[in-house]
């Protein structure tokens, strides 16, 4: 009897440390691995940012940023992406408490706002190319289309991913595998918004300001 009481007390007082507790749950391992991927993605964006910052004056007689960029368009794009980041957060709350309706609502609104962002960006690119500001025109425009286009490509991939996740929740329900993928998706979507903060500041706001 005495021995049993003592072991219970021991367990309560000395929890094993993280290294003694054995392998971490898969949710932590998967999310941490995806976190590392996102950070390396951000490092890639840093290289594109550096190229843009070096080449921003190299307009080669073509149009400069101040002549091309529309502040209103960028403000709407920023609002769309920020709001979609917020609804993505609400969506992940619904996933945690396994509310299907809340999940679908959050996912649909997030998708709509992300699609609106992408539509505005494609529209902006088309307008620039119509005015002769193509990626071939100058080093500045090459760097601009690479940097902003790469972010837009990430948003497009995120939208496809979101549709796939909606289908997986519909077919498979909130299984642990689906929940891990949803956690990775929300990490991805929030990271894209963080990159956009740097992007609209460096490219659009600093570009328009003399």
């Amino acid at each position: 009897m005495n021995i049993a009481v003592e072991t219970v007390d021991l367990r309560r007082e000395a929890l094993p440390s993280a290294s003694e507790a054995g392998p971490a749950p898969k949710r932590i391992i998967v999310a941490y691995g995806f976190w590392i991927f996102l950070l390396s993605d951000i490092v890639m964006f840093a290289a594109l940012f550096a190229a843009y910052a070096v080449l921003v004056q190299a307009t080669a007689g073509g149009p400069s940023g101040a002549q091309l960029f529309s502040q209103v368009n960028v403000a709407i794009e920023t609002a769309c992406l920020l709001a979609s980041s917020y609804t993505c957060g609400l969506m992940s709350l619904a996933v945690r408490s396994r509310r299907r309706v809340g999940f679908y609502l959050g996912a649909v609104v997030t998708f709509a706002l992300g699609a609106a962002f992408l539509g505005l960006e494609i529209n902006e690119f088309a307008g620039m190319i119509d005015r002769g500001a193509t990626p071939q025109t100058s080093a500045f425009l090459s760097a601009f289309f690479t940097l902003v286009g790469c972010h837009g490509l990430h948003v497009a991939v995120g939208l496809i991913w979101l549709v796939v996740m909606m289908a997986q929740v519909a077919v498979k329900g909130f299984r642990p595998t689906v929940e891990r993928r949803l956690l990775c998706f929300s990490l991805f979507w929030h990271a894209l918004d963080i990159i956009w903060v740097g992007l609209f500041t460096v490219v659009y706001l600093m570009g328009v300001h003399p």
């Binding site: 440390s17 993280a18 507790a21 949710r27 932590i28 999310a31 976190w35 929300s186 990490l187």
Partner: peptide
């Protein structure tokens, strides 16, 4: 109870 001894997944509150 046992959850607390592990690290927290990024993105988890």
């Amino acid at each position: 109870m046992t959850e607390t001894q592990y690290d927290r997944a990024p993105g988890d509150r």
